[in-house]
Design a protein around this nucleic acid. Structure first.
Lengths: 261, 261
DNA sequence: AAGCAAGGTTCATTATTTGAACCACGAGTT
DNA sequence: AACTCGTGGTTCAAATAATGAACCTTGCTT
């Protein structure tokens, strides 16, 4: 692992619940030496990726990320486009809907919306990366994204989150081909207990999936009927999103959706 | 310069006009070896800070910056707070108003607004960093920000942007003390021809300025009257912004504004 | 098919990162 | 006031990772 990755990984510890992090906290979180972390932090501080609270000396995310995010959204407005559909879908289905972009290290959340009305709600954080092998979004990514993702996942260990998390490599391969056949991914309590979700990929200008859109519900509300309904709505949204992003859905996927409907 | 800084600097080349950059373009822009750049790019790609266009193989900013920006705004909503005042001010003054956060390497734009009505408009980009010695915002930062900024600036060379750009170190020191006395910074055609601007600092929870808010106008519209008007409006906005950010204005600054009014 | 330019890779050399030990500071305790 | 504990921050020899010249591959142009 290179120095750049080590430094950038530090930024991943920030979240809604942990907006400021001190040097020692970082040491405890990462396990690497204080001096090393300090060097990395000061370098990112100098570049504006971090700011320091002068009173507590703790670090928080800096203004540079705002600048870059602004440029990205102005020039490649994937989030704006996707969030429209996420909102509509959430309203239509009355459940939590979220979209993520596929990365090597996992799924990076883009946006989410929850117009849910039920007493039980699924919690979703835009801060944390979703694992590829333990979520419906991740399965969809492995099934329809760049094949190197699957190779990588099969090689590296599959962390167990719940009793239902996929653990064996052959089990993962089986689930991935099932996902390819169905045209959508399904995961029941594989990441968080009592949460089931269903996901489909969407496409940008390449032959492999760019991201995924997903519905997550309390397991009690997931059955054959709702599953069918969610899958249909997601497939429709995926078509529209892909078109807006300038991408095309693979034949295979459209056929699978046609069979399912 | 460390490896992390070299890598992060690559991200600074992205802008509205240059949303995608190829390996060779990076080489020409930076002058460093292709292999080195490639390593840096792939590492940032793996971490989601970059994405690659599969057709052109060019790189663009990745979804990670959106994720981080979202966390930062949710937990430390400086941009949201400041942009309200920037909007109001722009509407009130009928000119371009922008705000930036002070960093070691320069000013990082936060937001801007232009409700200008005049035939001539000032162009402002949220992508590019503003130099400390050549803009009103920068002067305000040097005068009221962390003293190490001024030390740093005096040591490093002062790049010349126009005939009016401050060049000598004693000239810079003079302008900085003038700014401290006035309570606001003034710069005429020091960065771009035919553009004059005026800026004041605002404060967060520390004793030194956190950012600056500024009005930029065509030089033809800047005179004693408008200057007075802009300075007064900026000072008022700075007080409100600083309060909302949980900061206090230094006595000295409030006194200078009182004298000016 | 040949030529060109861009993206990408390799591997010995080199320079940078690394971390144990150390210092400084402030808060709470005796 | 001295003491301790837990921070943040710094130093410098040792070790590791970054570097770049040369090389390969790919896709487009002629």
């Amino acid at each position: 692992m290179g120095t750049i990755t080590k430094a950038l990984n530090l930024l991943n510890y920030f979240s809604e619940n942990m907006p400021e992090i001190g040097l020692m906290e970082f040491r405890n979180l990462t396990g690497t030496d204080k001096a090393t972390i300090h060097r990395h932090l000061t370098e990112m501080l100098a570049n504006g990726y971090l700011e320091q609270n002068r009173q507590t000396r703790k670090y928080r995310l800096g203004a540079a990320v705002l600048r870059l995010a602004s440029i990205r959204e102005r020039t490649f407005p994937a989030r704006r486009i996707v969030s429209q559909w996420v909102e509509r879908l959430s309203r239509e289905l009355g459940e939590l809907v979220h979209a993520s972009v596929i990365q090597q290290s996992g799924m990076s959340p883009l946006c989410y919306n929850d117009f849910g009305t039920g007493g039980t709600r699924v919690y979703f954080s835009e801060a944390e990366m979703l694992p590829l092998h333990a979520t419906a979004s991740g399965l969809a990514a492995l099934a329809f994204g760049d094949p190197s993702l699957l190779k990588q996942s099969l090689k590296s260990g599959l962390k167990k989150f719940t009793d239902h998390t996929i653990s064996g490599t052959e089990e993962l391969e089986r689930q991935v081909s099932q996902t390819r056949e169905n045209g959508f991914a399904f995961a029941e309590q594989t990441y968080e207990r009592e949460v089931s979700s269903i996901a489909v990929p969407f496409y940008e200008n390449s032959g492999f999936a760019y991201g995924t859109i997903s519905v997550a519900v309390p397991t009690s509300r997931m059955n054959a009927g709702t599953r069918q309904r969610f899958a249909g709505a997601l497939a429709k949204a995926s078509k529209d999103i892909s078109t807006e992003l300038g991408g095309n859905l693979p034949e295979q996927l459209e056929q699978a959706w046609y069979r399912a409907a």
